[in-house]
C-alpha cells in the first residue's frame, strides 16, 4: 500500500493529473462507502443506540450483512459486463475489492447467525446444516468464497498461473447461485426480493453465455 502511494505520487508529480491517481482516489472512496453498512452497526453498538435497529437488532444485523453479501456478489459479477458495454476498462480495478467485500459481509453474516441465533451452540449449527437446506447452501457458498478471497492477491495469480486462476474464480458463478438460493429458501412467504435478485443474476450469468464478438463492436 505504502509504495503504491509513493509510486502514484511520483507519477502525478511528473505528469500532473493522472488517471491512475483518479482510480486510486475512487478506490479509497468506494472502500469507505462499502464499509458504511458495518460502520453504522458499530456506531450503534458504541453509543448504545440499539434502537437504531428497532425491536430486533440482532435480526437486523443478520439481514443487513446478508443483504450486503448478495449486493457485493452481484456487483462483482456486474463489473465485466459493464466494462464491456461501457468500454471503461478501469472498472476491472474495482472487482477484487467488490469480491472481498462480498466475502467480508458473508463472514459477518455467518458470525451473526452463529452468535445471535445459535448462541454458539455448534452442535445445533451442525444439525442446521444437514436439516435445513437454506443453511446448507448458505454455508456452502461461504466455504467456496474462502479460497477465492485467499487467492485474490497478485502473488496468487502468478503462483496459480492465469488460466488456472480464472478457472478457480469462475466458481463465483456457483457461489452467487447458492447465495440467491439461500435467500429464496429462507423466506417464509414473500418471494419478491429473492425473485429480484434471481432475475438480476440470470441477466448477469446469461450475458456471459452470449457470443462475445457481438459486443466487441
Amino acid at each position: 500500500m505504502g509504495d503504491q502511494v509513493s509510486r502514484l505520487r511520483t507519477v502525478s508529480e511528473s505528469s500532473g493529473f493522472s488517471r491512475k491517481r483518479l482510480v486510486f482516489g475512487l478506490k479509497v472512496a468506494v472502500f469507505i462507502v462499502s464499509l458504511w453498512p458495518v460502520t453504522e452497526i458499530v456506531i450503534a453498538f458504541l453509543t448504545g443506540n440499539t434502537r437504531l435497529f428497532g425491536a430486533n437488532p440482532a435480526e437486523k444485523i443478520l439481514h443487513r450483512t446478508g443483504d450486503w453479501a448478495i449486493y457485493f456478489l452481484l456487483i462483482t459479477l456486474a463489473i465485466s459486463p459493464l466494462r464491456r458495454i461501457t468500454g471503461l476498462n478501469d472498472l476491472i480495478k474495482f472487482r477484487r475489492m467488490a469480491g472481498l467485500f462480498a466475502f467480508f459481509y458473508a463472514f459477518l453474516h455467518l458470525m451473526s447467525y452463529i452468535a445471535f441465533d445459535r448462541f454458539f451452540y455448534f452442535d445445533e449449527v451442525l444439525r442446521d446444516i444437514f436439516k435445513r437446506p437454506f443453511i446448507f447452501v448458505g454455508i456452502a457458498a461461504f466455504i467456496l468464497l474462502v479460497p477465492l478471497a485467499v487467492t485474490s492477491t497478485r502473488g496468487w495469480v502468478q503462483r496459480l498461473g492465469g488460466h488456472r486462476w480464472i478457472l478457480l474464480h469462475r466458481s463465483v458463478y456457483i457461489i452467487a447461485i447458492l447465495g440467491v438460493a439461500h435467500y429464496w429458501w429462507l423466506v417464509k412467504r414473500d418471494l419478491l426480493w429473492p425473485a429480484i435478485y434471481a432475475g438480476i443474476l440470470i441477466v448477469l450469468l446469461g450475458y456471459r453465455l452470449l457470443p462475445k464478438k457481438r459486443f466487441r463492436g
Binding site: 425491536a55 430486533n56 437488532p57 440482532a58 435480526e59 445471535f116 445459535r118
Partner: peptide, 20 residues
C-alpha cells in the same frame, strides 16, 4: 418439535441480541 426453518429450543426475548 423443531420447525423446518427455526429451531424452537431457544428464543430471543426482544430486544435482546442473543437467542439465549
Amino acid at each position: 418439535v423443531d420447525h423446518p426453518r427455526w429451531t424452537q429450543k431457544r428464543e430471543r426475548l426482544l430486544p435482546d441480541f442473543f437467542a439465549s
